[in-house]
Simulated assay, not measured.
Amino acid sequence: MTYCVGMMLDCGLVMMADTRTNAGMDNISTFRKLFTWEVPGDRVLILMTAGNLATTQAVVSLLDERTKAHGERDPSIYEVPSMFQAARLVADTLRTVIASHADAGQRADTTFNATLILAGQIKGGPVRLFLIYPEGNFIEAGSDTPFFQIGETKYGRPILVRAFDRTMNFERAVKLLLVSFDSTVKANLSVGPPFDLQLYKADSLMLEPKIRIAADAPYYQAISAGWGEALKTALDSLPDFDPCPQV
């Protein structure tokens, strides 16, 4: 399984993905699920993937190949004029890959399903964040829905809904994401570290260095332990249940 979150803040983008994949409990591996393309000063694109590994790897490989195949019919993400057109290109690529697998005798809505998050900025346009479905359609984040999740979303969502604020800085956003990821890891063995983190400062048109957060990273351990203790303290501070309330 997978857990990925993309946040759109006033200061830019915060993207985090786990790296665990499994084909049964005795076949667990680590694979990257966060990918980037960058032309400093012109464009920055960040893609996160969830679903069938063969499908997502094929999509990323096709996008990579098109950036090197000058003069070919298929457009490149380095050539599209806007983030909307980049989302259309990625969506079309995903639909094509799934259809090619379906033509081989499999159902696209089951075995080869995949969902993507695409975010970034192209010179002359704003920062944008998209959720792309396996059917090839997509939606865009806005003021009402400023973040997207894919994969195993339910365990980490409550803290995001309660604590997310578009005005928060990168440091606070990463702290919030680590709490969300830790809650998911504690509840689902198919999600696990290391976590890949990518920050992007709005209008910089240049990616911050990618960070990989290991399971034994001191900061992650402090967040995990601190959040657990904070929950216990909050629970103890609440009034006890009274089986015989006063009328």
Results as ranks from 00 to 15, higher is better:
L197S: 00
H101W: 14
G125F: 12
I132S: 01
A102Q: 15
G151I: 03
G136L: 05
T93Q: 07
K154D: 11
V161E: 14
D144Q: 12
L116R: 01
V127E: 01
T67I: 11
T184V: 07
D109G: 09
A104Q: 13
A108C: 06
E152C: 14
P81Q: 07
A187L: 05
A119G: 15
E140A: 08
A102T: 13
P134R: 01
A141C: 12
Q85N: 12
I139A: 13
L176F: 09
Y155M: 04
K123V: 04
S183M: 12
A69V: 09
P146A: 10
D64A: 02
Q121I: 00
L94T: 09
T96H: 10
I77K: 01
F112M: 04
T153Q: 06
L89N: 02
G156P: 02
L131C: 06
F164C: 02
F147V: 08
L129N: 03
M83L: 13
V127T: 15
I159G: 06
V185R: 02
I122W: 00
V127P: 01
Q85F: 09
F112A: 01
Q198V: 02
V179E: 13
S100I: 07
Y155S: 08
A187Q: 14
D92Q: 13
E65Y: 07
D182K: 03
F195I: 11
H70N: 08
R66A: 07
G151A: 10
E140P: 04
T93N: 05
T115S: 13
L118Q: 03
Y155R: 04
G105I: 11
F84S: 08
I139G: 05
L189V: 14
P134L: 06
T184L: 12
F181P: 05
T167R: 11
K175H: 14
R157Y: 08
H70P: 04
T111G: 11
H70F: 13
L129V: 00
D64F: 01
T115L: 05
T96D: 13
E72F: 11
D74A: 15
V179P: 02
R66L: 06
R166M: 08
A163M: 14
Q149D: 11
I159P: 03
A86Y: 00
N137C: 06
T115E: 10
